[in-house]
Design a protein around this nucleic acid. Sequence first.
DNA 1: CAAATTACTGTGGTTGTCAAAGTAATTTGC
DNA 2: GCAAATTACTTTGACAACCACAGTAATTTG
Lengths: 116, 116
Amino acid sequence: MAISKDLIRGHTDTIILNILSQGDSYGYQVSKSIRLLSQQQYELNEATLYTAFRRLEKGGAIASYWGDETQGARRKYYTITTSGQQHLTTALQEWGFAKDVISNLITGNLNEGASL
Amino acid sequence: MAISKDLIRGHTDTIILNILSQGDSYGYQVSKSIRLLSQQQYELNEATLYTAFRRLEKGGAIASYWGDETQGARRKYYTITTSGQQHLTTALQEWGFAKDVISNLITGNLNEGASL
DNA sequence: CAAATTACTGTGGTTGTCAAAGTAATTTGC
DNA sequence: GCAAATTACTTTGACAACCACAGTAATTTG
């Protein structure tokens, strides 16, 4: 992984919600989707992923069901709920806003009125 | 504070280094600088700030000295070191890179080749 | 002269993440 | 035909960053 964990921290739930908003999925596949979307720059630890699933399900943002695989390992599928869709929308708005604040905090000059 | 802590996490050190790169400062003033640079959108907890100072000093990115205030409360000033300057440069590069990866992870479409 | 402000420190707790190990089935390679 | 790799999910224990809260101490303002 090329990106420090702490820079992604806080985005895990949003990442999962984004992926699930494009269709039901299960752990292993979500994991691969993350690798794909980040162009191999980021890999989410399994334990972190499943912890996030439990957190999101507990919070009502996603729901789960066991697939009826007649062959292959059992898979637990996750769907995004209406509440989860709203969470995602809010998080995306917050990010659009936060990334400017962060940029300003780490590059901003104090002698320039601190706004640009 | 308008921005969730987890979105800032991992940037604290970089924020402090950016401020110190513009001149020596001390806790309370750094705190105010952060409020200013974020246009009141973010406030760093005191404990977090001083913990970061200790972490950065231990890592050699900053150094400290007590001011010789003839009046007013004593102040511990912090300076950025050469090593700290390099840390800052690296962190800024990583951020320029990471924010695109994050944007792609939280908005990217899996059916579009996952690159744009 | 009390209250607010400036300034620094310490304690204890929460949270997200991770490493490592475990279970169990299927598929691939020799 | 069997070992190794892959798919798939789970649990445990630990850590690092952050925060709330409390404390100390001086100065400034009302």
